[in-house]
Design a binder for these strands. Structure first.
Lengths: 136, 136
DNA sequence: CTGTATCCTTTACGATACTG
DNA sequence: CAGTATCGTAAAGGATACAG
């Protein structure tokens, strides 16, 4: 016991969670990234309000490309968060909506997003202070 | 009104939020990415338990490199989420902990992470079903 | 309309070496 | 211990063209 470790921080071994996101190879880390990634979070947020079609989503999520939206939707569908419903009409119509699991996830996600939006003035003030004192 | 839009989805104009994360150029989008990014979320999660030093964090956040941890901590400090306290001892000691704003953010973030960890069996099952039916 | 395929650029990341 | 600097690679992302 020579080194001075920070006391009283239990190493998480005693919890032994099956899907501990802090572990490198854990699948939950990948899923969390799908949810919280740049396009994943915005896509889920957009779908929290209502069912949307591909191009409606594209317009709602400002800045997303066709490629990224397609890729994002695939990942979210595969993880069981988004449901894809295709109608074989002409022109084709595909609707995307949240699954029950997706709604549970989005509830927590939006709670975070809303908090960040609400507190942006504080963040901006912190940034200015940080930059003013020269990034220390 | 020729096209068949999804009905009853209010375009968010009538809310007129100052920091709408759905808008491309909004600073809240960048902050959200700092929080939810691969290393940001894990770093914040690690700090939710206790104050940690640089190398303690490095060990706790499995897989993070020195460079990314340093970069991540700078971004979080600049956004006012993490506080950095340096002691001019030899060897030097630097402690990182959450600010009040950081704690508020982490509370919601952990709520999301915990949900994802809890529901991973469902996610895994959805993936298997998706892959089995050939990704449709 | 709803995508996929391709190419190309930019960014993120990791490894390593080095400084105070 | 706590980082910064540099370099090379890998992945993410955007633009465009095209298909069902």
């Amino acid at each position: 016991m020579a080194t001075t470790e920070t006391p009283a921080c239990p190493s998480s071994e005693d919890e032994a969670q099956a899907f501990d996101v802090f572990a490198k190879a854990c699948p939950s880390r990948a899923t969390l990234e799908h949810i919280t990634g740049r396009w994943g979070s915005l896509t889920l947020g957009a779908l929290s309000e209502c069912t949307l079609r591909f191009n409606e989503l594209r317009r709602r999520v400002d800045g997303v490309s066709e490629k990224m939206l397609s890729q994002t939707l695939h990942a979210l569908e595969r993880d069981g968060l988004v449901h894809r419903q295709a109608a074989a009409t002409n022109p084709p119509r595909v609707d995307y909506c949240l699954t029950p699991l997706g709604r549970a996830v989005v509830e927590r996600l939006l709670s975070l997003i809303d908090l960040v939006e609400d507190r942006m003035p504080e963040v901006l003030a912190a940034r200015e202070a940080y930059d003013t004192r020269g990034g220390r």
